[in-house]
Each structure stands twice: as C-alpha cells, then as structure tokens.
C-alpha cells in the first residue's frame, strides 16, 4: 500500500512542474466553467480515500492543486504522503512551562488553513484557578480568558487538542468510516467522505473535533499552499475536521506548527518507536499522565510537569 502511494507521489512531480508554469503565468486565468462543473460532479461521486486507485488519487491531487492555485493565487503543492514505516507519533506537553499565550492556537490556524470566519481553532487552551481541585476532569475550565498579560497570577493553563487516541471513540461511531486511525497513529478525516452527522463530536471526550458550520473562509495571503489531502487542505461546509499532528509536516520529518510556535518550549513531539526520540526521553524521565484516563481512550498525547507542580506565581 505505501509503495503504491509513493508511486503516486512521483508521478505528481511532472504535473506540478506544469502547474508551476501555469500559475506563474500572471493572472492565473479562470478555470473554464465546464471544467469547474465537471470537478464538482467528480467530487460528488468521489470514492473514499482508501478506495482511490493511485491514478485517481494523482488526478485528484492535481485538480486540487489547480483549483487551490486558482482560488488563492499562489502555487499550491498537494500531497498525500503515506505513513512512514516504524513510526508512531506521540506528543507531550509541559504544563509547568505553558504560559497560556495561545501562540500555538494561532500557528495551528494558519498552518492548517482553518476557517477564520466562522472561526475554527483546533487547539483550545483552558485556564484554571490554582488550588481548584477539579481541573483534571476539565470541568471548571475557562476557555475565553482575556487578561492583559499572561500568565496571570494564580492561574495555570492546559492546552487541549486531539489526543490521537489509540482507542479513538470518534472512529468507532462514524457510520461511514470517514475518520480512521492511520498506521502512524494519526486519526484523520476524509473531508470528501464525511457526511456531517457529528456523531464523532458527541463521542470525542476531548472536544477535539470542529464542525464547519458555515463555508470556511480565510484571507488569500494567509493561505498555506503546502497541503495534504488528509490534513490541512481547506475543508468544506458541513464536514468535520480535527488536529492531525500537522500530517503535512510530521510525515515530512518536521515538527508540528504548535511545537515550533511555543515560545517556552512546552511542547514535545516525536516518534514513539524511536528509543532516542525526545518524546521517549520525556516518557521515560518525567511523570506523565493523560486526560480522562478513566475512559481508557489511550491517548498518545501526554502531559507532565518538568518543574515542581506548576508555574511560580
């Protein structure tokens, strides 16, 4: 299967070269009306990602590049990079460092081409009162804190995003298998297969899934043209999306956008199968825990305190 997709990647290159020329040609000429109509028609009957043949996927990615280049006025690279062998991604977050600045939130929105209006954010930073003993069940959080400066005295912060559960409640309930766990542990959504029933949102214990209630929109100049079919390509009205550990970056051997954006280095990411990875270091040397362990969803997202039990206030 993975060889298969690698093949698809190769044959894409020529197409991309062609496209580069096309979009460079100044006022990226309008898609012919007939072609746009045919594209919409193809989309309506498009098969599930896993059922696409290599050729079909190649065509789809090429069309996606064409459509997005036209729409956003820049050269777009659409990929469907397959999982890397012997890799399962894991994440750890140092709660003693997090200052609640939400830079990860904004970096994620930009990287993943999330809708600005209506606003969609895949990372939610929860604020808690210190001394509040009800924080681990997340009951007494405040997501809409707006202080002049963070961190605020007497508060601490718990960023939450998709926990990439090993036993994902969301996958189990989806009636059409529009969401599934990839071999590298990333839970993805096929935005062209999701029927928008939102059963997964009722089932996810971490509020990790966001629905496109309206037509997603973002400023052209902020569009990120490096897109992945199962990740940060623009979503549609009426489908669900979620954090994919920046599949477009992690499968290319890069850190996720949130890891890079964090100014205090609270975020750690890596391959759980690699004994020398940073994430393994954290798991082996820190006392880590996971949210809502009693539900046994088995997240691959860990929390820990590297210093004492919280930030000094």
């Amino acid at each position: 299967m993975s060889d298969d997709i690698k093949g698809k990647e190769k044959s894409l290159i020529t197409r991309r070269k062609f496209l580069a020329g096309l979009t460079a040609g100044a006022a990226a000429s309008a898609l012919p009306a007939g072609e746009a109509g045919a594209y919409a028609f193809e989309e309506l009957f498009r098969q599930h990602y896993k059922r696409l043949t290599a050729d079909e996927l190649k065509d789809i990615l090429a069309k996606l590049e064409e459509e997005m280049s036209f729409k956003y006025g820049k050269e777009v690279h659409a990929k469907a990079t397959p999982p890397i062998d012997n890799t399962v991604f894991g994440y750890a977050l140092d709660l003693s460092r997090c200052i609640g600045c939400r830079r990860c939130v904004y970096a994620c929105v930009k990287e993943n081409n999330l809708s600005r209006d209506p606003q969609i954010q895949w990372i939610k930073v929860l604020e808690f009162q210190k001394g509040n003993n009800k924080w681990q069940g997340l009951e007494h959080s405040n997501r809409y804190y707006e202080p002049e400066q963070v961190p605020e005295k007497g508060r601490f912060y718990v960023p939450v995003q998709c926990q990439q559960c090993k036993k994902p409640a969301c996958v189990k309930v989806c009636p059409v298998q529009a969401t599934w766990q990839e071999p590298d542990g990333i839970v993805v959504v096929d935005y062209n297969w999701c029927i928008g029933c939102r059963f997964c949102m009722a089932a996810c214990p971490y509020g990790a899934r966001s629905f496109n209630w309206g037509k997603p929109s973002m400023p052209k100049e902020e569009f990120n043209p490096e897109i992945h079919y199962l990740g940060n390509r623009p979503q549609y009205k009426g489908v669900v999306g979620k954090c994919t550990f920046c599949i477009q970056r992690s499968r290319a051997g890069k850190y996720t956008a949130c890891v890079e954006a964090c100014p205090v280095g609270a975020r750690k990411f890596g391959n759980l199968m690699d004994p020398n990875s940073e994430i393994r270091y954290v798991l082996e040397n820190m006392k880590v825990f996971r949210l809502k362990e009693e539900l046994d969803t088995n997240p691959k997202f860990f929390y820990f305190f590297s210093m004492g039990t919280g930030v000094k206030s």
């Binding site: 309930v173 989806c174 298998q177 029927i195 029933c197 629905f211």
Partner: peptide, 24 residues
C-alpha cells in the same frame, strides 16, 4: 446532516456502511 448530498456513502456496498461498529 451537514453534507446530506453524500447520503449514498451510507448505502451498503456502494458506500461504506460501518456496521456493526457504529450504532448509527
């Protein structure tokens, strides 16, 4: 349904019917 035009995804054989896993 957010994307009701895709109802055919639910039809067994033609679509993918996640039975018996999904209670829906």
């Amino acid at each position: 349904m957010g994307s009701a035009e895709r109802f055919w995804h639910l039809i067994p054989m033609i679509g993918i019917f996640n039975f018996p896993q999904s209670i829906l």
